[in-house]
Design a protein around this nucleic acid. Sequence first.
DNA 1: CGCTGAGTTGAAGTATTTCAAAAGCTGTGG
DNA 2: CCACAGCTTTTGAAATACTTCAACTCAGCG
Lengths: 247, 247
Amino acid sequence: MNTSLSKKARSPTDYPTQGAGPLASDLRYLLDRHARPFDAKKLLLLQGDESSAVIYVIDGWLALTKSLENGEKQIIDFALPGDIVDPSAADGTTAAINVQAQTDGNAAVVPRATWEELLRSWPRLYELTQNAEAATLARRAERMLRLGKGTAEMRVAYALIEFCIRLDPTLKRSTPGFHIPITQQQLGDFIGLSSVHVCRTLRRLVRNEILSVEDHMDIQFHEKEALARIAGIAPADLRREIIPDGK
Amino acid sequence: MNTSLSKKARSPTDYPTQGAGPLASDLRYLLDRHARPFDAKKLLLLQGDESSAVIYVIDGWLALTKSLENGEKQIIDFALPGDIVDPSAADGTTAAINVQAQTDGNAAVVPRATWEELLRSWPRLYELTQNAEAATLARRAERMLRLGKGTAEMRVAYALIEFCIRLDPTLKRSTPGFHIPITQQQLGDFIGLSSVHVCRTLRRLVRNEILSVEDHMDIQFHEKEALARIAGIAPADLRREIIPDGK
DNA sequence: CGCTGAGTTGAAGTATTTCAAAAGCTGTGG
DNA sequence: CCACAGCTTTTGAAATACTTCAACTCAGCG
C-alpha cells in the first residue's frame, strides 16, 4: 500500500464526510455495494479511456486533471467526499479527464446504467445530483475567473478559502485551522502557477500575518477579512454559490 | 433595437442551428412557446439575481461571464444554438454567472419546474441534456488546461479551433472560412489575455501564414495541422470530446 | 547516515501587460 | 457627400508578474 500519506496516520475519517450526510441510510447502503477503496496517487482513469461509470466519492480526495503533450498538468478540480464525478466526454463513452486518487479513500464506482436507475428510483439522489452539478460549475467558474484575470495572490487566497469552505460547509469549524492534503506543486497545478511562485506567495501572506502554514499545508487564517479581500470574494457568498443546499 | 450587429444584416439564420437538429419537431414546438428574442449586448441575467429558469438557445450567441470587483471580466463560455444554459448556483435559486446576449437571437427561457417536466416526458431531451452537459464540462476543462498552462499562442489557436468545430460539427464545412461574432477584446476576456496581446498573437499567426483574419473576425485556416499542433489538440479528438453524439 | 521529496530563496530571463498614440471602419447628422 | 464621433485594431516602448534555473535546507524514512 502506498504510504505517502500515512506518515501522519490520517485515517479516512479525518477527511470530512459532509457529502454523505443528506443521503438516506438505505441509499448509502446501495452505494456502499459499489464501494472500492483506493490508495493515494493511484490513477483510476486515464483521459481517453473507455469509461461509462459515475464515481461517488465516499471518503478521501480525488484529483481531476488534464495534461498537455509536453507533460504540463492542470488540476481541473478536486473531488471531495460527497462529490459526484462524471468523467465522460460528450460522446458518453470516453473519459475527458484523468482521475487520480489524491489520498487514500473509498469511492462508489457505478456503471452509468445503474446510476440512471438509481436516479430514477431515488428522487432525493436526483435532487442532490442537480445541486452538486451546479456547485461544480459554479466553483470552476470562480476559478476560471481568477485563472484568467487574477494575480497570484488572488488565486492562492481564493483556493484556500474554497478549500476551507468545502472542508467545513457549516463555516463553524471546531478547530481553528484545517489541512489540505496537497503539495505546493499541486496547488500550483491547480491555480496555474509554478510551485516556486506558490511558495513565494504563501510566504508573503504569512509574512503579512494574514495566515500561517505549518507542517505541509496545515493552514490557519488570521485575517479572514483581508484574505477574502485579496481573494475577491465574501466567504458567505461563496458558500451559497458552491455548497449544495442541505449541507 | 440594438443595431450593433445588424450592420452586416446578418439574419439569425446566418448562425448555425445544429443544436436544433436532433430535436423532434413537436418538442421544438414546445420550446418555441417559451421563445423570447434578444438583442445583442442585452444583459439577460446578472450574477446573484434570483433565477430558476433554464435557457435553451434557439439561435444567436450568449456570453456567460463573471466579473471581479475591479471590473475585470472573464468570459466563462459562449452558448451557441442548441446549447443549454443553467445559470443557477448550488443553492438552486441565484445565478452564479452573468448571461449576456452576444448577438441578436432567440432563446427559450423555461422555468425550472417546467424544464423538469419536459425532461421527464421527453427521454430524448433528457439524453441530449446529459450529452450537452458533458460537452460543456469537457470544453471548459480544455480551456482551463490552457488558461493555466498554455502560452498565448496556444490559447488563441485552441479557441479558434473550438469555435470552428462548434460552428460546424460535421468538420465538412461548405465555406473555407467562418465568422466569430466577437471582438479581439472579448477573445482576450475569453482566454485570459489582454486585447493587445490577442492582436499581436493573431498577427503572428497571420504572418506565419497559418491563418488569415479579415473584416472583424472572418477566420480562415491555411495550415490546419500547424494550428492544431500549436493548440495542442487533434481536431477529430476535440470533436469527439465536445460535440454531443448525434450532431 | 545518506537518500528522497518538499519547501525556500536569489538571480536572471521572458511572456505578457500597460500605456500611449495613431490608423481604420461604421454609422450619424449636417 | 463630408466631417465627426466612437469603437476596434495595430504598433512601439517601458514596466512587471511570473517562470526558470540553481543551490540549499529540512524532515521523514529505509
